[in-house]
């Protein structure tokens, strides 16, 4: 029985990795000017480097792909955890307002430190490194608010959870808009583009800012993933098994908020990935979270890379924020889920 699960998992993962490689391939070869695979390999392996190719690959396309991959991974993982903890298939960090909380806090940060820091790169790498910390604070505040408003009779009320999430994200959205209006014009434009979820101004410092968060938090989450299986039981049963429910949930939730903040601070708010990826993963590898978690991470990666490819090519040379592409792809799937799930 377990063996069967495991082989299904490995087959799925190989297929997903194939899909990711394919997405990377079309993303890296297409763009303002197309490149062949051979060009890319020769550039990557430093066989016949030319400045043009170096610039396009190392400064534009590669960082963008890496960020798309990391953001997808983070959101896929965080979505799985949030759905697992709340026992709610419709929960998603975006819908719950955690993204918006992190976003508002980062907009505040941008406002006080003037955007130039974040844009101009190397000389201000410090502020980019600090951004996720601010994001974390905002995400944390959102999560605390959600808990306060949906906590009744010693447990989280699922219906209230989503509603307060919607309310909180609207509130933080309004706050972000308000603050961004106080910014200088150029900053304002940056901020709006960033808020709707985009990664086309990617660079290596953003990646550097993200990596420590993922390196520390993802292993913690993965170690605790088996607990998510238990969390699918109802509260009394879990407690009666001797699981320190509140403590374990807090660790998992805080770690996810950290992951989300790291993602939001580089890409803005990209919704629906955290919702869709876990569902597809469960369809593919079953309900065990030790399998769901990596599968969901891989699906998230694929979705964001692929959506970003669409975002840059559909209306080229105009860029569409990737968050909007994801929303257009994600909403129909969300509605489909809503129709399928029982009340």
């Amino acid at each position: 029985m377990h063996k069967q699960n495991r082989s299904r998992f490995f087959i799925t993962m190989s297929a997903l990795i194939g899909a990711i490689l394919f997405a990377i391939y079309i993303h890296i070869t297409n763009g303002t000017f197309d490149m062949s695979v051979k060009d890319i390999f020769t550039t990557l392996l430093r066989m016949n480097p030319t400045n043009d190719f170096d610039l396009v690959i190392f400064e534009f396309r590669l960082p963008r792909i890496v960020i798309a991959a990391l953001v997808g991974l983070g959101l896929g993982i965080a979505g799985t955890v949030v759905q697992g903890i709340t026992r709610n298939g419709l929960a998603d960090p975006g819908i719950l307002g955690i993204n918006a909380g992190a976003g508002a806090s980062i907009v505040i940060f941008m406002f006080f430190f003037q955007m130039e820091l974040a844009v101009s790169g190397s000389s201000n790498w410090l502020s980019i490194i600090i951004m996720p910390i601010f994001g974390f604070l905002g995400g944390l505040i959102a999560a605390i608010l959600i808990y306060i408003f949906s906590w009744t009779n010693g447990k989280l009320d699922t219906q209230r959870l989503i509603l307060s999430g919607i309310a909180i994200s609207t509130g933080f959205g309004a706050l972000s808009l308000y603050i961004s209006l106080k910014m200088r014009e150029s900053d304002f434009e940056m901020a709006t583009v960033w808020m709707s979820g985009s990664i086309y101004n990617a660079n290596w410092i953003f990646i550097l800012a993200m990596i420590p968060w993922l390196l520390i938090l993802v292993p913690i989450i993965y170690r605790k993933a088996y607990l998510l299986d238990y969390f699918q039981l109802e509260e009394s049963s879990i407690k009666s098994l001797g699981i320190q429910v509140e403590k374990e949930k807090a660790i998992l939730l805080l770690s996810s908020i950290g992951v989300i903040s790291a993602c939001v601070s580089v890409s803005g708010s990209i919704g629906f990935i955290g919702l869709i990826a876990p569902h597809i993963a469960k369809q593919l590898v079953g309900i065990h979270h030790r399998y769901v978690l990596p599968a969901s991470a891989a699906i998230g990666m694929f979705l964001v890379i692929f959506s970003d490819y669409l975002a840059k090519t559909i209306f080229a040379p105009a860029e569409i924020p990737v968050g909007i592409i994801v929303a257009i792809l994600g909403v129909p799937y969300f509605l489909y889920l809503l129709m399928k799930t029982k009340a």
């Binding site: 608010l145 408003f149 009744t152 209230r160 509603l163 309310a167």
Partner: peptide, 11 residues
């Protein structure tokens, strides 16, 4: 206000 509504009459 919305949050208050949810809080007081969510169920």
């Amino acid at each position: 206000f919305f949050l208050y509504l949810i809080r007081t009459r969510g169920g």
